[in-house]
């Protein structure tokens, strides 16, 4: 079971029309080398699940306006003028969820739950068309899980088994998306031997990572 591979090995995993989840928050903690690969492969019709579309020069933001993304499922696009242009021109679709709802939908998939009940959005346009459930007199919105064909994440320190440590605020969505897709590819900022990451500080256990590529130092 050799997880550390070169980019050639993982190229066939990327296909037009697939759904890809991406770690990162406004590009902090995003797998930039894997995003380079998506651009290089000239993929199209992708559905991207991500917190936000970052900035035109960072993270998923670099894919916007290149004819790659058909639809983005996220909480916010306001920091990327390209997103605004593409959405206004009908070149990209968007599905918004409140940030705390989005991450829980992803978590529900990874954790094998049938969905989550959240009070967020009650009495707002977010509840429209959704099932509501009352628990002890309080109303909640039922939000089903979100899955993906592929998850791409970035770890600060990754061992050859796929155990991942994320530095500081780079953790964000990474550990959660790592559990919610059929296949997870981790970009390692620093690749180390098994045993070199203290087991007490592993954020993503290696069993969730299928492939590891060496990234570039941010």
């Amino acid at each position: 079971m050799k997880k550390v591979v070169d980019l050639e090995t993982i190229k066939p995993l990327f296909k037009d029309g697939m759904t890809i989840m991406v770690g990162g928050f406004l590009g902090c903690g995003a797998p930039e080398r894997l995003i380079d690969l998506i651009m290089e492969l000239k993929l199209k019709d992708l559905t991207i699940i991500v917190n936000d579309t970052a900035f035109p020069d960072r993270g998923v933001g670099r894919l916007v306006g290149k004819g790659i993304i058909k639809k983005v499922i996220c909480s916010h696009v306001g920091t990327n003028p390209e997103s605004k242009r593409c959405l206004n021109a009908g070149l990209m679709e968007v599905e918004f969820y409140p940030q705390g709802t989005l991450i829980e939908k992803i978590r529900a998939q990874g954790f094998g739950l049938g969905g989550i009940l959240t009070p967020t959005g009650i009495g707002t346009p977010v509840e429209e068309g959704k099932q509501k459930i009352s628990v002890d007199g309080q109303e909640f919105i039922l939000e089903p899980p979100l899955r993906a064909d592929l998850a791409i994440i970035k770890g600060t320190k990754v061992d050859e088994f796929g155990n991942v440590f994320y530095s500081k605020s780079t953790r964000n969505y990474n550990p959660t998306v790592a559990m919610a897709a059929d296949i997870t590819i981790c970009e390692a900022q620093e690749l180390v031997k098994v045993g070199e990451i203290d087991k007490d500080i592993v954020h993503t256990p290696g069993i969730f990572v299928n492939y590891i590529i060496e990234g570039v130092v941010a």
């Binding site: 928050f25 903690g29 970052a54 705390g100 959240t118 500081k168 605020s169 780079t170 990474n174 941010a218």
Partner: peptide, 29 residues
Amino acid sequence: DLTNAGGVYVTIEDYGSYFDSPTSFGIVR
């Protein structure tokens, strides 16, 4: 590796800590 929710590079106090997004919104909700 250290930004705020606006993408601005910030600092953290000695007593501060980092966590994933489910925990962050668990704090909120």
